[in-house]
Design a protein around this nucleic acid. Structure first.
Lengths: 271, 271
DNA sequence: CCCAATTTGTTCGTATGTATA
DNA sequence: TTATACATACGAACAAATTGG
């Protein structure tokens, strides 16, 4: 593979290096102008992940090697990696290496699951698949997923239980085009989190999401799924999940019974 | 002031420097053992802010000066500052300096106010003070504020309006001991955010918070304050705000009408 | 169990670019 | 324009964790 070096817009002339390119790293695009070097490096690493050269769980070349490949100082390389680690896209392990992050249960609980019992008990929810169908997107889903209404999609419902009680009812819409071959069977038989399934089976890596929360009266479907009276106040969370390239890939409406559980949110974390 | 240097547990012997100590920096505590140097530096800067040597809005000495004071490399100093900037405790401005963060409106909207109209419109809320009294803490407030029920406190209510509609009803409890001299008048006549008042008038700097959200039926007081029917589903947010030393300083129950507004939450931010 | 190799983590120091006053 | 301060980039050495012999 042809690997050009990142144009050095710093004064001290770096020595021409002859290190062979690490497999999977594309040359630097010419539009890096005006961007700090560490940003260009970050983008390059990102691109290698997005185009599949670096699969989830894969180890990156070690830092000095990577720095040599990009022809940047090790400090510059480290800064790029720092940023990607902060975004949960890479994971560093001292003594072992740097890896492309995978969607583990821990990450799911930490980053994407905010429900816990009032007394603070957190546990992984049990999941029941309630329905699965091929549909065409309604307006809400289409708007969230940046496509047109009517776009083919999969729609399925999950019921999450905590400590044996039904607490969350999820209605999930994903574009069919991104999840070819998704079946009820595969959803039901997965032994992992949904986002791990997206990642390992469809190459869709969710990296962030935004949510809008409202209090509503439970509709009939949610009430039945959750065993509460229709009209009872429940928390409705509409989440749009964003994948690696910045593309919205999942629209999810969660209905949460907050009788004995809370949605928890940390405003800034202590260091 | 007597400023000792941070004990260097690195191999290369740093030169003894004779830079005069920057005013307001306490000597390094001896329990820094095992802690990376940049953490010790961070803690030292924090302590200077907490003990008032560095007031909100104050400029820190420039980086080389600070590094010399602590007898660390500039990179190490910068890493400590990086962390404090990420926590919104310091603010860097290229060409100007590094400053202790203040509670501006922007910061309030960005970090502590999560309500916006369904269509995404964000604006600063209008505030009406509905009540103000001296009370003794109930169990909830006491638990949140890590004291005993019955502890003297101030309790006051705010109504927030967005685009002319009442949207949020706040019931706020703060320990009287931390806010000596707080009066209805001072609350009503402030020209700033509440957290700015805490900071500028009482030396209480809120740095983070945690929230627990639930859907409930509006109680009578909130229903009246917000002009909705009692029992209508509303979002209830119980927030505990944490000040600089890690001490909880405010317990707040917000009741939010989510008919035309949402509580928005970002799960991980793009870099 | 210990040792050596590997990899990230921390710390040092210097030079130059860029924004601000 | 000049001086100041943070921002970016360079490079080197050693510490600490991990792994495999």
């Amino acid at each position: 593979m042809d690997v050009r070096t990142i144009p050095a817009h710093h004064a001290r002339m770096p020595l021409a290096r002859t290190v062979p390119p690490a497999a999977g790293f594309a040359p630097i695009a010419p539009d890096a102008a005006g961007m700090p070097l560490y940003r260009a490096v970050r983008r390059e690493i990102l691109r290698s992940i997005e185009d599949g050269s670096l699969a989830p769980g894969a180890a990156l070349p070690n830092e000095s090697e990577l720095a040599a490949t990009f022809n940047v100082a090790i400090g510059t390389l480290r800064r790029a990696v720092d940023d990607l680690v902060a975004e949960h896209i890479l994971v560093r392990r001292q003594g072992r290496g740097t890896f492309v992050a995978t969607h583990t249960r821990d990450r799911f609980l930490f980053q994407f699951f905010h429900v816990e019992r009032c007394d603070g008990l957190r546990e992984e929810p049990g999941v029941d698949l309630l329905s699965f169908e091929r549909v065409r997107m309604d307006e809400d889903a289409a708007a969230a997923l940046a496509t047109r209404p009517g776009t083919p999609a999969f729609h399925f419902e999950n019921r999450l239980t905590l400590q044996g009680t039904a607490v969350v009812h999820d209605r999930i819409t994903v574009p069919a085009a991104l999840f070819r071959g998704l079946t009820e069977k595969r959803l039901r038989e997965r032994a992992t989190t949904i986002y791990h399934l997206y990642q390992s089976e469809f190459g869709v890596t969710v990296v962030r999401a935004h949510e809008r929360l409202r209090a509503v009266g439970a509709d009939r479907a949610s009430a039945r799924a959750l065993g509460v009276a229709p009209g009872q106040p429940v928390l409705e969370v509409r989440r749009t999940a964003i994948a690696l390239g910045g593309r919205p890939v999942e629209y999810r409406v969660s209905t949460i019974v907050t009788a004995a559980h809370d949605y928890v949110n940390l405003l800034s974390r202590p260091a």
